[in-house]
């Protein structure tokens, strides 16, 4: 999959949930959205990008969710 596009999509999702003043709710919202709507290969590839040291363009909420909500995001 196109990682640049996945990065953009993840950031746009994060931009929505980031508006929630409750950080835990924002993280849950972001992670839940990916789990409910992204096909597994998209999630795996983006998480792998971050695991491999990439994903510098990802918003902090995305990177935090990949760490703190990892089990929720991955199949």
């Amino acid at each position: 999959m196109n990682l640049e596009k996945l990065t953009k999509m993840a950031n746009e999702i994060a931009a929505f949930f980031d508006a929630d003043p409750d950080r835990a709710a924002a993280l849950d919202g972001f992670a839940g959205h990916l789990r409910r709507f992204w096909e597994p290969r998209m999630r795996k590839e983006l998480v792998a990008l971050v695991d491999g040291g990439g994903g510098g363009d990802l918003l902090p909420l995305v990177r935090q969710a990949f760490v703190e909500r990892r089990a929720q995001i991955l199949p």
């Binding site: 196109n2 992204w38 096909e39 597994p40 998209m42 199949p75």
Partner: peptide, 11 residues
């Protein structure tokens, strides 16, 4: 698990 959406299919 959810499947691919149309734009994801293209990618």
């Amino acid at each position: 698990e959810p499947g691919l959406r149309i734009p994801n299919m293209f990618d």
